[in-house]
Design a protein around this nucleic acid. Structure first.
Ligand code: MN
Ligand code: MN
Ligand code: MN
Ligand code: MN
Lengths: 220, 220
DNA sequence: CCTATTTTTTAGCCACACCTAAAAATGACA
DNA sequence: TGTCATTTTTAGGTGTGGCTAAAAAATAGG
């Protein structure tokens, strides 16, 4: 038994949902994985057992799954590849930030350590991807230490600056683009009402103290 | 039924062996496909029937298989992608010409028309890949009209200039590199004895009239 | 032209990754 | 605490793409 595209995608989902739940000791529910992967629960049940046999995840039946250290390390290398490829597609090939996720979802599975190293160097070792999300380094460390919160959790009346947007939320990326908002844009009460509320959880912001300062927008 | 990595690889093999046999009406034997794909004959038998159902190949049992026009067109688009990616890996990422085939074998299956278009433009619409092999254009036409013959078929005593080397023959690429030979190098009797005879069929040359002219070597 | 060898296909098996339907465990709450 | 709704797993089935062993067709030699 070895790597495969599907196993890698399940691993990555387990990492992503675990992070969202607050760290490496969080248990992730089968149903949540199934929803994220657009697959039925029994498929996840089966795959999670495979991940356990591979030593990549721990599975407590009827309770959930979480990554082992080696699984986490593999997941981080997939996230790294995904975000490096997205950076390449936007910075070098000129794609829009809303067009690259599906392609990177394929490219991340290309198996070549040398390729990732050269790509990273070619892009000048970027620290964040086109959606503002941090790119783990070759050791799996995330050096980016910004503290971001979902716009949906920003106190009413407060302002925030967009630090990142979930890359798999094409709709939200579109909405921002249509409103001339992007990474670095500052969000006030007006923008909050303009942007559909369902998307607020996918827009990650830093609280913005002085609402009078000039918004430092980097057009998307 | 739709595309898949394996079906695409079989299609590409059918194209490659058909070309080697002299064109689009050549029938390719099951065993030859199996040898090329490093798979057993029954697997090819099954796959060839699938290709027929997909309308990509014609199969006459106990006789062989060949591409339909639509299969040929798909195969050419795969060859195009493979060679564009190899060009990217060598020209932009600095890989050696003997390191890129296996990676391109994966990259060629990435499914995005837009990506191929942008990659082609990014590379300034190259006409040949790092191994000298022509890159079909977006319509599947091969504009490169050089007439190349295997070194093994060059008359004894004649000279030849290297026009291309089969990209899947890593050993041959290595041998050339070790002898400081590459695309454009001129091969005389001395080089022919130096290079192992088994590799001669994979080195494609144009006959070289004036053996006294300076060899126009492009270092590999 | 008939037999022996080679080539190819068919038959039957397995692993992977998905599905639906049914069973089992959990947890909420009366 | 007992029941019930929800979640999860298990059971059983499908399609893909491999394999080996056996059968069938083609080819070659005497
Ligand atoms: Mn993926
Ligand atoms: Mn991203
Ligand atoms: Mn391939
Ligand atoms: Mn090539």
């Amino acid at each position: 038994m070895a790597k495969s595209t599907n196993r890698e995608d399940h691993l990555k989902a387990l990492y992503a949902l675990g992070e969202r739940k607050g760290g490496s000791d969080a248990w992730v529910a089968t149903n949540d994985l199934a929803a994220h992967l657009q697959v039925k629960a029994p498929s996840v049940s089966g795959m999670v057992q495979v991940l356990q046999e591979l030593g990549w995840a721990e599975h407590r039946p009827y309770h959930g799954a979480r990554l082992t250290p080696s699984g986490r390390s593999l997941a981080l290398s997939l996230v790294r590849k995904h975000r490096l490829w997205e950076t390449f597609l936007v910075q070098r090939l000129g794609f829009g930030w809303d067009e690259v996720h599906d392609i990177a979802e394929q490219l991340e599975h290309i198996d070549s350590v040398e390729l990732v190293q050269r790509l990273d160097a070619y892009l000048d070792h970027p620290e964040v991807d086109p959606h503002g999300e941090p790119i783990p380094n070759v050791h799996g460390d995330i050096l980016d230490k910004r503290v971001l919160m979902p716009l949906s959790e920003l106190p009413a009346g407060a302002w925030g600056q967009i630090g990142a947007v979930q890359d798999d939320q094409g709709q939200v990326l579109d909405q921002l683009q249509r409103n001339n908002l992007g990474l670095g844009s500052v969000i006030g009460p007006k923008e909050r009402t303009t942007l559909p509320a369902e998307g607020h959880q996918y827009i990650l912001v830093t609280p913005w103290e002085n609402a009078d300062a000039r918004p430092q927008t980097s057009a998307p």
